[in-house]
């Protein structure tokens, strides 16, 4: 395997890690505040649909993204109502949201566009294009003949859509917000001991709603990236379990932002391997079934959850509705 192949795989690792990272950080905010969120998948899916649909009809990818975020935040609000206000089971609410998104997106896509539950392909200004950094080579034959450093710069660092860079920047921002601000301290506290936070005169309900809302925003970005950055349009069930992989990454990262980055990169790497079976087969010198490569991220998730990589302790009040008078 030559350097360029490795760079190409790493490049697609970054691309595939982007939606995982957004979703993972979304889950981080929600779960740090004590609200389990297995509806990441559904929120991403509805955002993917709305962003592709609006980007296609308006011809503007940014309007599409806003629509995607709106859809995702709406589902997040539903999750908030169910799990904060009505103290419902957060897991069941998440499952309901996933199904709601799965059915609703295809139904409405068929109604709007009549293309078998897809949106038409988005292109040009209706899609996030790669940003070419100054001096980066664009043509593949130029890159092939360039020096290794230039190859890395052009292939790996330059050429991603803006949302990939946003996702990477969101990691330090999340870290700063959670660990260096008053809001972050309160948010983490509400996930560990909401009673104490309440006693200190801080509103548990509104803190949790804000956290769930941030999760909605970030899932919206993840969905917009999926449908108008990574792919060119919405397709049925296009999230393909990414929301759950993001959850696994979150547990692997033990609910910490920097670790989340590395966990998502690892899963992105596994996903990119399944796109390059030729490289994998060359490396291991026998034919690996494609299905095994597809299943690899899920298998790794189970291995990680099995605790072979150290014990992950969730926020203590996670999944528990807060009852004031208890």
């Amino acid at each position: 395997m030559d350097l360029l192949t490795i760079l190409q795989i790493l490049d697609s690792t970054l691309r595939l890690a982007t939606p995982l990272l957004f979703a993972c950080l979304a889950g981080l905010f929600s779960e740090r505040s004590g609200i389990f969120d297995i509806g990441l998948e559904g929120k991403m899916l509805i955002a993917a649909f709305f962003s592709a649909a609006f980007a296609y009809t308006t011809g503007n990818v940014w309007l599409g993204m806003l629509a995607g975020i709106a859809g995702s935040v709406a589902l997040a609000a539903l999750h908030g109502v169910a799990s904060v206000t009505f103290r419902g089971n957060q897991l069941i609410s998440g499952v309901a949201i996933n199904f709601l998104a799965a059915g609703f997106t295809v139904l409405i896509a068929q109604n709007w566009f009549g293309q078998g539950g897809r949106t038409p392909a988005v292109a040009g200004p209706a899609r996030f294009e790669g940003l070419n950094w100054p001096g980066a080579l664009e043509k593949s034959e130029d890159i092939r003949n360039a020096s290794p450093l230039m190859q890395a710069y052009s292939e790996l660092i330059s050429g991603h859509t803006i949302l990939t860079y946003v996702a990477l920047i969101t990691v330090p921002i999340t870290w700063y917000v959670l660990f260096r601000t008053r809001f972050g301290l309160r948010l983490r506290a509400v996930g560990e001991n909401p009673g104490a936070v309440d006693t200190a005169g801080i509103n548990v309900t509104s803190l949790r709603y804000i956290a769930v809302g941030i999760a909605g925003l970030l899932c919206g970005l993840a969905g917009a990236y999926l449908a108008t950055g990574l792919a060119a349009g919405f397709g049925k069930d296009m999230t393909a379990g990414r929301g759950f992989i993001a959850l696994a990454a979150l547990i692997f990262a033990k609910w910490r932002p920097w670790y989340a980055l590395f966990a998502c990169l690892l899963f992105g790497f596994l996903q990119s391997l399944s796109l390059r079976p030729d490289a994998v087969n060359n490396l291991v010198r026998f034919e690996v079934p494609g299905q095994l490569l597809d299943a690899l991220p899920y298998i790794l998730t189970v291995v990680i959850l099995a605790g072979f990589v150290g014990k992950a302790i969730p926020p203590r009040a996670g999944g528990e509705p807060y009852v004031k008078e208890r």
Partner: peptide, 18 residues
């Protein structure tokens, strides 16, 4: 897909919004 939506709403109302 309408069935999936109905199913989701049943889960939502009988489960989460009980």
């Amino acid at each position: 897909d309408m069935i999936v939506v109905i199913q989701a709403l049943v889960i939502l109302f009988t489960g989460a919004l009980d």
